[in-house]
Amino acid sequence: MSAGIEISLAIILLSVLFSLSSSRLMTLIKLMALQGALVSLLPVLLNSANKLPPGGIALFLIMLLIKAILIPALLYFALTRMAIRREVEPLIGYHASVVVGLGLILLATYLSRYLQYSAPGVLALMPITAITALGGGLFLMMSRTKALTQVIGYLMLDNGIYLMGTALIKRTHSHYLVELGVLLDLLVAVMIMGIILNNINRAFDDVDTLDLEQLKD
């Protein structure tokens, strides 16, 4: 099963890089759906040796529903109401962004060596992917001006943190109900962001966060 895990992780890594180079908002949403599905699948793959309890299966299905279907669908509907389809003028260009992404992978590889010392049991690619997704998400939020791209950056950051949690923590600590709460928070957060997105679109005829600079000191 190890091959399946590594392939999934590699696809997540590539999806981070791809999202940094893509200007089409629709592509970004599709990438988030793919990432969400893989991130939900990973805990199942990691635990494939032992049989999953019913609670674990239910949680996996709910997570798949929220991360791979509901959230991308919400973003899709937000997008259909907007006039824009592309991120036109990113603060940092696409080629430069990919270079930053590659740099992030290097940094992540360096950082996860510390993790290897403390926890040799952890699959090497796991923290690398987690840190790259985390950093990529943060970078996307800072370097893009469309509000929708910033939401996608937040989701990627969240995926990275979740992957980090999966890499570090054994399942015995987590409680299904608690994990469900975390997921619910994420879903509601994206819903509220979607509502604000809609209102920004209506008020400014655009979702550019550069318009949002009236409040300052």
Partner: peptide
């Protein structure tokens, strides 16, 4: 629902969530 309120809410939700 003013433009300023919109901006404040957006910053609040995004910065705090991150």
């Amino acid at each position: 629902r003013s433009k300023q309120a919109l901006e404040a809410t957006w910053k609040y939700v995004l910065i705090c969530s991150v």
